[in-house]
Design a protein around this nucleic acid. Structure first.
Lengths: 300, 300
DNA sequence: ACCTACACTTCGTGAAAACCGAAGTATACG
DNA sequence: CGTATACTTCGGTTTTCACGAAGTGTAGGT
């Protein structure tokens, strides 16, 4: 019989990447979690983690198991939220999935308008790979997916995309790094260390085309599927990184980096994907209208 | 923090319909399960079951919670199977969903051919409402769905139906009940107590049309979405019930009932619904070919 | 090279929980 | 109205879980 508590610890450790961080989240001590996970591994005679340096890393088996656990406890959290909400009753659920390539502050600004609706919404927000989010959209476990690309056609799922807006991109670096690559933008990018979005993103290929046109060859030193992670590396001075221009001010402020330059020749778009049930969800309406009115007003 | 063990007990009790049966499955005593579920209810201050007679029934909250639990532990079971299978490695997964209106012995006969393939399959079989199965098909948590109707068009899911076969239906009753309604078939059905498939099934409406044509008004005393349940009631002598003619012999033998008559004017069809990935799953091939070759050979 | 900080592990103990036997209550059925 | 069945309640017992103390191994600075 599978021990769901142990599996839960496994999940938290896997997603936080370390036992210590899992402890903070679970209010437990490391030896407890370490022990319980060892027991789990023992039960099935298979290692889920392996030590790499002083961190833990998923083994092959662990990587296989993680999506199952993910699904289980994601559902578990929703169930718990539902059980707790029972008494006060009937606020409308609004379940949003966010593709991990979308910068968090964009997401925040997109979703913020839904918080101020007259009818109280209960918002659930989840981040994942686009494909998985769309699957959940199909079975109506999500009401809306926010992504940087419209609905792909190769999936066996119907969905309707709605463009929220489009904007140019800006380049950022720590001041020290920026000083090392002086000169006019964009020529200053020549040979500079660059962090770029992963191969699966839309903006990646546009960016590369633009570099070719400008006859600039930056030195790509990192690829990231998750924009927050990319920005974290950028903040440490590893390389120059990009973000949509609408959040340029915020990036400069929050990460303490310098704006190197910006272009509208490369644009990033954002889409709201829904199944478009007969009744439009108030949350979706708020997001699409809010995006048009406030976030992307300066653009066509 | 949600107690997953208690939730698991809740799930088993809900799906078996009784604590005692859950005990058999979990190797526990009733007082344990009863107690643990009470604790769960206490934690969230909400009843999940209510006593009806000496059985338990889901409350409104329980009904809301069940699909979540279903999802969780279904996934949990798959995970466990995967973890166990790890050592011997690489047998092809074949996950089949069966709509509950399809008689079990038909399902068995359809699936049986896959057991004898040269390449070893690991078959997972799940029974549920058609709609839920199709949702899981869309996100590739299932490879095939077997149903009595082709892919409905109103869902936001793509799927491809393939007709497995078609056959007439037969009427059955206990000998005692049959004796009470003597005479030639189908006139003997006039005024006889009848158990029929639920309103959502395809055969239901065909059956009613046929009765109208024959100018027969049976007395409908029960509707069932689950064919096994209908047959159980039929076995107890509650009423006359139907089943596809291909399994007539088996129904007579297994339930100890008499065959009253059969007609090919009302037919029941069975379909295999898949997402038709590039590569045809060996299990799907085996089922469609097996159906054509063995089960429904006598028909066009 | 060595010291310190950090992350995970091992071991033994104590507390919490889960579980069971016995007995009790309530319902269905003949 | 008695018997069988299903769920509950109430102790006591067993098992599981969690922590403190101490240990191993790695990273990084001096």
């Amino acid at each position: 019989m599978l021990n769901y508590r142990q599996l839960h610890y496994f999940w938290v450790v896997a997603r936080t990447g370390s036992i210590v961080r899992a402890c903070e989240q679970l209010n437990l001590t490391p030896q407890t979690i370490s022990g319980q996970i060892s027991l789990l591994e023992q039960t099935y005679g298979i290692a889920l983690f392996q030590r790499v340096g002083r961190q833990l890393e998923l083994t092959e088996a662990g990587r296989k198991a993680l999506p199952y656990a993910e699904q289980m406890f994601q559902t578990g959290n929703e169930l718990e939220a539902m059980l707790r909400a029972q008494p006060d009753e009937q606020q409308i659920l609004f379940r949003v999935g966010v593709a991990d390539v979308v910068p968090k502050s964009i997401v925040y600004r997109l979703i913020a308008p839904t918080m101020e609706l007259s009818e109280p919404l209960r918002i659930t927000c989840r981040e994942d790979k686009l494909e998985r989010l769309l699957a959940d959209l199909a079975i109506q476990r999500l009401d809306l997916v926010i992504s940087d690309s419209p609905m792909p056609t190769h999936l066996d799922i119907k969905g309707y995309s709605q463009k929220l807006g489009e904007c140019g991109i800006s380049f950022f670096a720590t001041q020290a790094l920026a000083d090392r690559h002086p000169g006019a933008f964009p020529q200053c990018l020549q040979g500079a260390p660059l962090l770029i979005p992963g191969a699966e993103t839309v903006i990646r290929s546009r960016l590369q085309r633009w570099f070719a046109e400008q006859q600039i060859q930056p030195k790509i030193i990192g690829e990231f599927d998750d924009s927050a992670l990319m920005q974290a590396f950028g903040q440490s001075g590893s390389g120059i990184f990009i973000a949509p221009s609408v959040i340029a001010d915020e990036v400069v402020r929050q990460y303490g980096v310098a704006l190197i330059g910006q272009t509208d020749a490369v644009t990033e778009s954002f889409y709201a994907i829904s199944v478009e049930r007969k009744v439009k969800h108030p949350g979706i309406v708020a997001i699409t209208e809010g995006a048009r009115r406030e976030l992307f007003t300066a653009l066509p």
